[in-house]
Design a protein around this nucleic acid. Sequence first.
DNA 1: GCTGCAATTAACTACCTAGTGAGTTAACCC
DNA 2: GGGTTAACTCACTAGGTAGTTAATTGCAGC
Lengths: 220, 220
Amino acid sequence: MTAVHPPARAAGRQRDAARTRAEILKVATEEFARQGYTGARVDEIAARIHTTKRMIYYYFGSKEQLFTAVLEHAYAGIRQQEQELDVEHLDPAAAIRRLAELTFDHHEAHPDFIRLVSIENIHEAEHITASETIGRLNSPAIEVIGRILDEGRAQGVFTADVDAIDLHAMISSFCFFRVANRHTFGALFARDLTAADRREHYRTMLGDMVLGYLTGDHAR
Amino acid sequence: MTAVHPPARAAGRQRDAARTRAEILKVATEEFARQGYTGARVDEIAARIHTTKRMIYYYFGSKEQLFTAVLEHAYAGIRQQEQELDVEHLDPAAAIRRLAELTFDHHEAHPDFIRLVSIENIHEAEHITASETIGRLNSPAIEVIGRILDEGRAQGVFTADVDAIDLHAMISSFCFFRVANRHTFGALFARDLTAADRREHYRTMLGDMVLGYLTGDHAR
DNA sequence: GCTGCAATTAACTACCTAGTGAGTTAACCC
DNA sequence: GGGTTAACTCACTAGGTAGTTAATTGCAGC
């Protein structure tokens, strides 16, 4: 019990640039996701990790640059997950269903990411447009979808005339809406789109919808 | 040119409670939609219609109550449009397609409504949950969809096992995403989901998707 | 053990922002 | 034409808010 022991949370945190930066980014992600860009408070982010506001400006420069860094980090996460896609050994229909389910699972597991994207759209994507790292790499998922579509059409099982980007939009819209709009939808229609006991229902519904579209009779 | 004429914009606006209230609501809708709840400024709303901030508090009580009033007004608009639905004279497939297209058209025509709903979801629907007028009436669209689904199943053309609320979610998700997420989607995939020359493409895609799902082979 | 610098702290500024107190004026009624 | 009151104006407050200035401290390399 001597003064030699570094107290658990002594006056002054230990110096660790990487950790401080990472903590700021993590808490900023939560704050921006919960409160929106304008609603998030730089002071509050600093307080939550027991550092000072000055450190945020030291590492990120401004509130706006911090938000951009948060977005870049969030998008890097989904890109990495997409890179691990391994569905092309399946037949086209099963591959598309599996791929749609991966988007479904990702969106469900990352509600903060969904919120950040919603917020960024309110701001008309000005931050990711300005970002150098986000726009550069295209989504690996698009390439995969494109190859599956080609294969499905070659086999004659897919009849719809879509490209990979539009099909990706279709899949995303269902997965995104279910998470992003669950609050207003629940309030208006008394149905919880993210209830655990309805999860499989919606996951199946998504696959049926996409395959129903791809294999449907388009002369209706 | 005598003093008898009321000057167009004299010192002091002419007294008209209904007009002042309506103007506040209209401009508040725009400001909240563009800037978000926290980002919108009460002073700015007042300045844009040449009244004072004090009047906003006189008529609406607080910033939060003003936002709630804005949401109530916006939802009243879509409810009214839904009440004019007249698709039940069509055969079930055509009726569903038409109904989906009406949602498509409404969302496209009212981007501010979409933004407000996105913002309200960031705030976890706290305002519409507290509102007495919004939750009360259920959407007329749900009733209509329910009847069309029954008829389609009776005729044997619809094979999917969905209820009206889930089908409404499916339709809304596509229409909502296309408008709400157009900025980030455009930035990431270089595709403008709301480009005028692709409008018909997406409108058709929506109908094909919903009917593909409803009439599809669900044993895949 | 000393030095140079990255990392951290604390105190501060200038402006913004929701909300209010209290008085003023135009319209309407009789 | 005088009284009543809803509609409106103006000046103000108290606390927040992003961003800054400048001093200090711990650590790595010597």
